[in-house]
Simulated assay, not measured.
Amino acid sequence: MEMLYNSDNYAVVEFRVPASEDENPALVRGGYEIVDKFNRKEIYLEGALAESFKQGVEALIEQSPTVEDIDEYIERFSSLMQQPVVLH
């Protein structure tokens, strides 16, 4: 687990699950958890959606974005966020 981004509005954490000894080492699973702090909702992206998110972030990084630019990109995923954030 690695914190990739943390602003006043959003937090993005990357999860990587390495392949076990029985699996192909090229098969690394994982994804991204995005938390909307204002609306207290979250989503976990994996598979093709996670790859699309990653590519979008990489393209954005090449443009030297501001925090507002990054938050605007992440906001595109807010309509998918259904899981309420619960603190234990």
Rank of each mutant, 00 (worst) to 15 (best):
S78K: 02
G56I: 10
Q82W: 03
M1K: 12
D36N: 15
L60E: 04
E21G: 11
P65Q: 04
L80S: 07
E23W: 03
V35E: 03
G56R: 07
E68A: 13
V86L: 14
E33D: 06
V13Y: 09
E46R: 08
V13H: 05
K54I: 03
N24W: 08
E42I: 03
P18E: 09
I74S: 02
L49K: 15
L4D: 04
Y32C: 02
A48F: 08
Y10K: 12
D22G: 03
V12N: 05
N39A: 13
V17N: 15
A59Q: 15
R16D: 09
L80Y: 08
G47E: 03
E75C: 05
A11E: 13
E51T: 11
E33C: 09
A50H: 06
R29H: 06
P25H: 03
S20E: 07
A50D: 05
D69M: 06
Y44I: 00
E42R: 15
T66D: 09
G31K: 04
E2W: 06
L87M: 07
E21C: 06
S64M: 08
E23I: 00
Y10F: 15
L80W: 01
V13G: 00
R76W: 05
E21H: 10
V85W: 03
E72R: 15
R76N: 11
I61N: 12
E2T: 13
S7D: 11
A59D: 13
G56M: 06
E33M: 12
E58I: 09
E72C: 13
P18C: 03
G31Y: 03
A48V: 10
E14T: 10
D36K: 04
I43R: 01
I74P: 05
Y44A: 00
E23G: 01
N9Y: 09
A11V: 15
K41F: 02
V86F: 12
T66S: 14
I74H: 02
N24H: 15
E68D: 14
V13K: 09
V35W: 01
G30A: 11
S64D: 14
S64V: 06
D69Q: 06
S52T: 14
E23Q: 15
Y44K: 01
I34E: 01
F15A: 13
M1N: 10
N24P: 05
